[in-house]
């Protein structure tokens, strides 16, 4: 049976569609022309300008402070939530729990942004890094919980029973057996939380205050009110950083899951 070439051709078109803008963006970051339609030779001028800009570095600092603290808190909360959902999944409490955790994944970001803004204004919390932190944890928890939950679903709980049988306490079996075996899921969740926090614009835009400009907010104002070619350079750098992180974690996750499989 000759398979139709149509789906393969469509896939090629889809891939080209997905990558063309990114490739042109990277090329343009080395193009000294003000507008990107003409190639005026290879140049690092936009990178040089980027490194001279103090606002960028301030924004990077803010972004990292938020992302690191958000990742730490949401990994702990999300892992506990995933455990609860998996272990007590049938109870009514967990059904409510699941619905709540699912909420941030489906609700459009703008709704989350505006509702959090209303709350902070109503209660009188001053907007700034702290409100951004609260908002980011709120959606990152859900992503971490779902990632770890996926890992838990393949988890064979008789291993825990074996540990208890061999004399480990509840806490010991959690710390020495459960957590190490869940590590690939937790690492993947942490990575996801970090990336989402670094990248978030919409929610941050609503709950940010004076002096709490993050990198996406800075990029946004650059797009809207100024220096586009510099963004090409900045984007290329971001791309390199995230791609390296993703490929590394992918390799790490593969190796770990392989190890877990062979022992399980």
């Amino acid at each position: 049976m000759r398979r139709s070439r149509f789906p393969i051709a469509m896939t090629a078109v889809v891939m080209a569609f997905l990558y063309l803008p990114i490739i042109i963006l990277i090329l343009n970051s080395f193009n000294p022309a003000r507008f990107s339609s003409r190639w005026e030779g290879f140049s690092l001028v936009w990178y040089a300008k980027l490194f001279e800009s103090p606002e960028i570095w301030q924004a990077v600092r803010n972004t990292l402070i938020i992302a690191v603290s958000v990742t730490a808190v949401s990994v702990v909360l999300g892992t506990a939530a995933a455990y609860a959902l998996h272990r007590f999944g049938a109870s009514r409490l967990q059904r409510v729990h699941y619905t709540l955790i699912y909420q941030p994944l489906v609700v459009p970001e703008i709704l989350m942004g505006i509702s959090l803004l209303m709350t902070f204004v109503a209660v009188g919390v001053p907007l700034g890094l702290f409100t951004i932190f609260l908002a980011h944890v709120t959606f990152c928890v859900s992503y971490v919980a779902m990632t770890v939950l996926g890992r838990l679903q393949d988890f064979d709980f008789s291993v825990i029973e074996a540990a208890r049988d061999l004399g480990a306490s509840s806490w010991q079996s959690t710390r020495k057996i459960l957590l190490p075996m869940l590590m690939p899921g937790i690492v993947a969740g942490a990575l996801l939380a970090f990336t989402l926090s670094v990248d978030d614009f919409v929610i941050t835009f609503f709950v940010a205050g004076p002096g709490s400009t993050t990198l996406p907010l800075r990029i946004y104002s650059m797009i809207k009110y100024g220096a586009p070619p510099m963004i090409n350079a900045l984007s290329t750098l971001l791309l390199v950083v995230t791609l390296t992180a993703v490929l590394l974690s992918q390799r790490l996750a593969n190796r770990r899951s392989g190890a877990v499989k062979s022992t399980g």
């Binding site: 997905l18 990558y19 803008p21 990114i22 042109i24 963006l25 343009n28 990107s36 990336t195 990248d199 614009f201 996406p216 990029i219 946004y220 797009i223 586009p228 963004i231 090409n232 984007s235 971001l238 791309l239 995230t242 791609l243 993703v246």
Partner: peptide, 17 residues
């Protein structure tokens, strides 16, 4: 991979295209 690149950057890429 495109999902892992910054959302704003992708929109910006189209803006310049």
């Amino acid at each position: 991979i495109p999902f892992w690149t910054s959302f704003l950057v992708r929109v910006f890429a189209w803006r310049s295209l």
